[in-house]
Amino acid sequence: MSALHEELAAVLADMPNEQRVKVAGRDFWVGHWQGHAVVAVLSRIGKVAAATTATVMLERFGVGALVFTGVAGGLGPQVRVGDVVVANGLVQHDMDASPLFPRHEVPLYGRAVFDSDAHLSGALATAAQQVLQVPERHLGSATLAQFHLHAPQVHRGLLVSGDRFVSTTAESEALRSALPTALAVEMEGAAVAQVCLDYGVPFAAVRTISDRADDTAHTDFNRFIAQVASRYSHAILSQWLAQRPAPGVRLT
């Protein structure tokens, strides 16, 4: 799953035999990649859209694992533009049912943090580290220089989601104050993690840092996605699938 078309385009280009199935106004692309049965879909932006898409993936297509890829704004002090964050846990930063429940806790779940699947996330982190060891192989030296990317790193930790595009220093500082361990912020992951918990299906999220979610946020967001994030996502997923055990599980 990806929220933006540019993030999914490189994946679809590697699925030459895919079939399009339309459900709930969305195009689900069913095919094979690296010898594995795969379903790829554009979730659209925001938590509700992502939750709807995830539910269809699980109910209609019966996927055995679900991976969300895309971009995020960096929050952790060590997280730089061009780095990759693999979530260990996800929180809805705009969830606040206080005083009935603690801030960020999802009512009736007894938790604020929804864990990603440890094995799946670990395999994706390994694939990301392998890809980022030689980033110019996937991006080219000119692109690395253009976006001032130097020695990109893989981070693992907390990813926070909310229905707000965070792009000011005041907003990012408020998030760091409320959730000091958060590495990055985006708009879909925690909702999908909650759906996957409901269904007992492994979930992982891999996000490329496009900006620092502050007043210096990337001015050419779409170009960064097309030239950097989509290529990272494609390379990481391809590497992960190539190393995955024998086929038998449908994936996203």
Rank of each mutant, 00 (worst) to 15 (best):
M1E: 03
A3E: 07
A3L: 01
L4H: 09
H5R: 15
L8P: 04
A9R: 14
A10Y: 14
M15I: 14
P16Q: 03
P16F: 01
R20G: 08
V21W: 10
K22G: 10
V23W: 06
F28A: 07
F28C: 07
W29T: 10
G31R: 09
H32D: 15
W33L: 15
W33G: 12
Q34C: 15
V41T: 10
K47E: 02
A50V: 09
T52S: 14
L58Q: 02
L58F: 05
E59V: 13
V63C: 11
G64L: 03
G64M: 03
G64K: 12
A65M: 14
V67R: 05
V67H: 02
T69D: 00
G70L: 01
V71Y: 00
P77E: 13
Q78D: 12
R80M: 12
V81D: 03
G82K: 11
D83F: 01
V84M: 04
V84C: 06
V85K: 00
A87W: 00
N88D: 15
V91F: 04
H93S: 03
M95F: 11
D96M: 08
D96I: 10
P99D: 04
L100Q: 13
F101K: 08
P102V: 08
H104P: 10
E105D: 14
L108A: 12
A112L: 09
V113R: 13
S116L: 08
A118Q: 13
S121H: 05
A123D: 13
T126N: 13
Q130P: 07
Q130W: 11
L132C: 04
L132D: 05
P135I: 08
H138C: 11
G140T: 04
S141D: 14
H148D: 15
H150Q: 15
H150G: 06
Q153S: 08
Q153A: 10
V154G: 00
V154I: 06
V154E: 02
G157N: 00
L158K: 05
S161G: 04
G162L: 01
G162P: 07
R164F: 12
E173K: 12
L175N: 00
R176T: 01
R176H: 06
A178I: 09
P180Y: 05
A184S: 09
M187E: 02
E188W: 01
A190C: 04
A191R: 03
A191I: 08
A193P: 06
V195R: 00
C196R: 02
D198E: 14
P202K: 00
V206W: 01
V206E: 00
V206C: 06
R207C: 00
R212Y: 09
A213F: 00
A213W: 00
D214M: 02
T216A: 15
A217N: 07
A217L: 08
F221A: 03
F221Y: 12
N222E: 15
N222P: 09
F224N: 09
I225C: 12
A229P: 07
A229V: 07
A229C: 10
S230E: 06
Y232H: 12
Y232C: 02
S233V: 12
H234D: 12
A235Y: 05
S238K: 14
W240D: 05
A242F: 09
Q243Y: 08
R244L: 14
G248R: 11
